[in-house]
Design a protein around this nucleic acid. Structure first.
Lengths: 216, 216
DNA sequence: GTCTATACCGAGATAGAC
DNA sequence: GTCTATCTCGGTATAGAC
């Protein structure tokens, strides 16, 4: 019965990959990333994810085995997006003058955090409680990222800025709170933190603040 | 049967108030503040709160009527603590030179956030999703606090710092992420963010950064 | 392979026993 | 007033129908 496959039109993004199963997995993961990051793990039910993804019930168990395994798949996908945005910037900027390079990378991180506010939401959510999810995130994503930040911090000779590396790291990450807490931000300011110029302003201000420089 | 009251020793803090009912309420609210802030609203069950408080089942319904009303009581208590720490500082510092006053108030806010990391955890948690809890928090606490920060920001003539008031506000609040995310912080750095000198360092660094000054 | 039915558990809230 | 039993609902996971 592989004939029905040709009867169902595919979007361009789905064309190359296997059709049926992977499309369902992708729909579930997209919905999972959004709901886990907005509501947290416990508050998000698998039924809710499946309804948001527009798929049948029990397909999470079917494709991923359990809610826990599904969450890990969502996190791998989410932080994979962040890594794909940031790793090339880190590698390709190695030749730039250290002070300017660190401002460049700060701006890149802010823009990546605006593109994936889910990553900051997850960290704000899971960083509070020492459980299996924090352990998993630290091992697979936070620790490697912190080590990278440490490398850049030391290469940029930022010790003289008055910020320790751990202070630098937490200020950088939590400066993305304007994106992570967008609903509150909109209520307070009446503005949209995801507008291009708001993102750019946040990126430049943080690059300036964290290096004691002038932004660009 | 008011005699039993005298057979049960009371702590100094309980002495003045009515004994039985108010003590139970206080125990429940203490546990509720901690669990709501660590796990979020949906992920925290009333049974869990009651067990953590060491009281009988169904006493939350009995004393507060519902989980929702109990949450609001917890939030009023939590942000009441913050207000009692900060309002006197704001009032009494009105005579200080504006630039120095704002650094003083930043340090006070950081120290208050270290004393009540639950407040930052709640904001990180509830700021992500536009529901009845965010609406309630903004109306009762966030909006008044943001207005106060705006007043201080304008009185201190901080517009020249390159930070808009909304950027200033979110950097200030989320600089308490080192306390809110203490479990992750400990895993990453091996240090305790609640040590007195760590709190002081964070307070001075933020006072310096947010005003472009030298910290003190 | 896909979908339905259901088991089993724990949630919040209520009613009734003492 | 205090505690227990229970109701109803919704959660994850499993087994079985097609």
């Amino acid at each position: 019965m592989t004939v029905v496959k040709f009867e169902q039109p595919m979007s361009a993004t789905e064309a190359e990959t296997t059709s049926k199963s992977e499309v369902t997995r992708a729909k579930l993961i997209d919905a999972g990333i959004r709901l886990f990051s907005e509501q947290g793990y416990e508050a998000t039910s698998t039924r809710q994810v499946q309804e948001a993804a527009g798929v049948q019930r029990n397909l999470i168990t079917y494709h991923f085995g359990s809610k826990e395994a599904f969450w890990k798949a969502c996190m791998s996908e989410l932080f994979g997006h962040m890594t794909r945005l940031l790793r090339p910037a880190i590698v390709q900027s190695k030749d730039i003058e250290p002070g300017e390079r660190i401002r460049f990378l700060i701006r890149r991180f802010i823009r990546a955090s605006a593109e994936w506010p889910e990553s900051t939401r997850i960290m704000f959510d899971e960083g509070r409680c020492d459980d299996w999810r924090l352990e998993w995130l630290v091992q697979h994503y936070v620790r490697p990222f912190f080590d990278t930040v440490t490398d850049v911090y030391e290469a940029g000779n930022l010790g003289r800025s008055g910020l320790s590396v751990i202070q630098f790291y937490y200020l950088l990450v939590s400066s993305a709170s304007v994106f992570a807490m967008a609903p509150e931000y909109r209520l307070l300011s009446g503005k949209d933190p995801f507008k291009e110029d708001a993102i750019d302003e946040q990126a430049h201000v943080m690059a300036m603040l964290l290096t004691g420089g002038t932004g660009e």
